[in-house]
Nucleic acid binder design. Structure first.
Lengths: 204, 204
DNA sequence: CGGGTGACTTGACACTGTCAAGTGATGCTG
DNA sequence: CAGCATCACTTGACAGTGTCAAGTCACCCG
């Protein structure tokens, strides 16, 4: 009982080969032919299944959003209070991004994916649903959506800065230190949101 | 009196051609040969100057960081109070990213650039210097660096989400609406930081 | 048995990055 | 002024790439 309806195996194998290739050599080196070689099929087989290089990458990205969705769902259910839950969600996003940097990178690289794939759109929306729900519990309902998106941007920005080594460079830390720093910053932000929500300044 | 020491023209022309190509067709279509064609030189001329496709893209990225640096410097000097200055800086970052999405995208795409180019590293560090200075004026000195980086992540995340149309998709807005939303979210964040800084909860 | 449909393969094309080897001008040296 | 080195490219070639048209082969429905 997986999220997809049991593909005929070759397609699945190709997809796995694509993910492996992506993780090993980065998205630029994911060529239809390299994936075909790795999966042991002819050079045009991937095009047969996915239509396109973009189609193949899109399939990988959709898969990535499904994985992100379960990661966030798990984090959301195991956090204790609502504020702990909120922070846990952010950390889960961060960890997913830092554990699978190549996939995360691809997932948000519209220019490499098929322009308006509906599966991609819904997968993305579904993955973010838990965040919305949790944020609504922390701040008031009226501002929930805005804070949810802002929080998403915080986590997303941290992932990007760590992944591209920008953070390590500016803060003069190694990559592990950068990840730790990102964790701390997210905590800082979460605490700030909770404090601000308990004592709303003028709005409301 | 430019930031670079008057290149012999051909190199400059190539660089301009590369930027144009990047803005028109996205980073994937920036090929050495296409740039050469656009600049009206032989197909190997770009490689002669930049060594590499990565070298050429890196030159474009360094240029981008220089532009970002002046944009942030201007914004920093025209904001009125320190909090207004802080917000102005964030908006300038946001606007730069949304006005030049392709260049901004490239600037943080380490995997496409030359791995440890010193010019790139210093250009990046210099561009972010104003943010550090302004943040130090808003929150206490001890936490300044952390808040500066967090703020950077916020702006960076918002740019990424708007650029990749993720924000428009989730919030069900068109691209212009998404940019406006990003502006508002940045204001929300800036106000929160200012409020939190004036009444620090427990730390400190 | 017969035909059609899906799952590939084969072969070709234009395009790409990169390299080795040129060519000509410019400037320095003796 | 002669010779020579260096720069700023060009020319030509190679392997690898995405994509397309056509082919092969197995299987299923009737």
């Amino acid at each position: 009982m997986s999220t997809e309806h049991q593909a005929p195996s070759a397609r699945q194998a190709l997809l796995k080969a694509a993910v492996d290739e992506l993780n090993e050599k980065g998205h630029a080196s994911v060529s239809l032919r390299a994936v075909a070689r790795r999966a042991g099929v002819s050079h045009a087989a991937p095009a047969h299944f996915f239509g396109d290089r973009a189609g193949m990458l899109t399939a990988v990205a959709v898969d990535g959003f499904h994985s992100l969705a379960v990661a966030l769902r798990n984090a959301g259910s195991e956090g204790d209070a609502t504020q702990g839950e909120f922070k846990a969600l952010g950390l889960a996003y961060l960890d997913f991004g830092l554990t699978n940097p190549a996939v995360m990178d691809l997932m948000f690289r519209r220019s490499e994916l098929v322009p308006d794939d509906p599966a991609l759109t819904t997968a993305q929306r579904d993955a973010l649903a838990p965040l919305r729900a949790v944020v609504a519990g922390v701040v008031g309902d009226d501002a929930a959506e805005e804070w949810a998106i802002l929080s998403w941007a915080v986590a997303h920005g941290l992932v990007a800065l760590v992944r591209e080594e920008a953070l390590a460079r500016v803060a003069e830390k190694d990559q592990d230190g950068a990840a730790d720093l990102a964790h701390r910053l997210l905590g800082l932000y979460a605490a700030g949101v909770a404090a601000g929500a308990q004592a709303p300044p003028s709005t409301r």
